[in-house]
Nucleic acid binder design. Sequence first.
DNA 1: TCCTTTAAGTCAACAATCCTGTCTTATGCA
DNA 2: TGCATAAGACAGGATTGTTGACTTAAAGGA
Lengths: 179, 179
Amino acid sequence: MNDGKPQAGAGLLFLREEEMRLAQDLLFFAYRDFTGAADPILEELGLGRAHHRALHFIGRNPGIAVTELLGILRITKQSLARVLGSLVAEGYVRQTPGRTDRRQRLLTLTSSGQAFERRLYERQRDRLLAAYREAGPQAVDGFRRVMRAIMDKQARAYLDGPARGGAGGRDERTQDPAS
Amino acid sequence: MNDGKPQAGAGLLFLREEEMRLAQDLLFFAYRDFTGAADPILEELGLGRAHHRALHFIGRNPGIAVTELLGILRITKQSLARVLGSLVAEGYVRQTPGRTDRRQRLLTLTSSGQAFERRLYERQRDRLLAAYREAGPQAVDGFRRVMRAIMDKQARAYLDGPARGGAGGRDERTQDPAS
DNA sequence: TCCTTTAAGTCAACAATCCTGTCTTATGCA
DNA sequence: TGCATAAGACAGGATTGTTGACTTAAAGGA
């Protein structure tokens, strides 16, 4: 990075600060417009972004336990309970007792929950796909690297979990809890 | 990416969907932990993330008009008024009438506002800097390209505005409104 | 079996953040 | 002069988040 030019100090520090300020802006605007893309669908169904986040991670982790979902969303039990309550009440999410640990209420999307989540997904996908095409595969690789590096160890470990990334294997949770 | 294997259809579609799902995850976790990095400082001063966002964009655009800030944050006048009210009351933000348009109340950080914003910035900077170092300059370039491509035209235009990006020139707003 | 811990849910109360709609004041501008 | 715009204010409400205390059921070790 420092390519050995004589006067190193203030000028480079300025550049570095502007780089970091730009990164702040990028994260704000990209996230703002990425999440905003699904808003029309949510409004149509009378739900909010909190519901969307829950649907996304339940859809992505069928049979996830409540505690695990809380750890992902980083919200309190109460906050999740409210959101989850309406999702269950409207038939988007099903709760089934854990087989090995019967204290758990494993969460799964119903078929209408899957359909709803897919509509939300498609809006964000369209935007992401266009961005990926515009930026090109090499940029996409860099994007992934930086985004992974920004997040906590814990989140990286989650992304590397058996359900994702791994060579095609579905993990045990994917055996859908019998309705 | 498509390395010319015979059976093209379903398998590749699956891969593409997993790519998009991963992108959703990346945006959620990176944003969650990026914003979370400043939370301890905010809590210390008894302010919230909404205050941080306002401070950031006022600091980045000294002398910004209220309407322009509303357009960036995409919130309503009422929401901003509440946040701005406390920032002004606690002496972090100064409002000065516009010189050319006296209806405007141009927003600037006071020196204590600058100091506060800097503390918040430094937390996020540390995380971003570590991520940039870990991912490497080429990845950073890709990150920027993809993030820019995700956001709205309007936001890209903002980032290309005269105050940023341009070859070193400060724009007229930077002439700080006389206190 | 007894005891502790854990998973989940619940209730009450509250705080932050956002929204809508309506109105006023001052100013810009044709 | 008349309309549009910038900003602020008021009233009321919705969403999303918080804390703290408590209950129920089940797991799991001594």
